[in-house]
Design a protein around this nucleic acid. Structure first.
Lengths: 121, 121
DNA sequence: GTTTATATAACATTGATATATATAACAATG
DNA sequence: CATTGTTATATATATCAATGTTATATAAAC
């Protein structure tokens, strides 16, 4: 099924799905928490709504782990924003996680196929 | 991106990924924990190895939640086996979860595409 | 006073780790 | 033959760290 038999990723990317989403977005465009909320909402077409409490907690913990770094910036309006960028470590984490996801793609597709066969309305 | 804007699934299927794998297998062929270990290992090509301690804990909790039901059966060899089947509630849970996964497919594919563009060796 | 923006304590869920138990089959030993 | 030890099969559970949610609080700018 897969083309590799080993898995160097130290954890299940499915478990930290949101962290990979966040890293993927920040990798291309560093931004701040409040913006990420709508960004992720948009990209997932409303299927992946996050509460503010979730995103800020996750962002803070990711910075503690050294996956992200932040600086304060003045916005056009409203209070200052904490802008996050992906660190080198964060990029490595993202790469390893996505690599595992790629290897799992067929397992994922199998689940989709199963749904179409058995449950599709 | 998605074709629906709402999400009736009460939780992220990514968070309980393994539970959906288990339900998907048991839905077609009821079996016991030890067998599930190799079944899932095989289907994921060794990318999704589970320790016995994980599968039995998950199975027990899924039965507590009413997603699975079990009966003891004698095997050809070795000790008796606890064979699990998917309950009606379990099937509904599986259907709802997979339905959400389908809606997330494009988000998933976007991550795969991102990997190919940015990281592929 | 509404929108924008961040913060955090407390919590439930999840799956992993480590460890324990028990049965059946089989070979070796006495 | 009977016993012993080993391996493969099979289940169980306590404890733990990671994860994301909930609820709530704070504050700046307009």
């Amino acid at each position: 099924m897969c083309n590799q038999n080993s898995c160097e990723c130290w954890q299940y990317p499915e478990r930290s799905w949101i962290q990979f989403l966040i890293l993927r977005v920040l990798y291309e465009t560093p931004t701040y928490g409040y913006q990420l909320l709508s960004e992720i909402d948009e990209r997932s077409c409303g299927c992946h709504k996050l509460e503010p409490g979730s995103i800020y907690t996750v962002l803070r913990r990711m910075e503690e782990k050294g996956l992200l770094a932040s600086t304060w910036e003045k916005g056009d309006a409203g209070p200052d924003r904490r802008v996050y960028t992906v660190t080198e470590k964060g990029a490595g984490f993202l790469k390893a996680g996505l690599s595992t996801m790629v290897r799992r793609k067929q397992l994922f597709d199998d689940l989709i196929g199963f749904y179409e066969r058995r449950f599709k309305p």
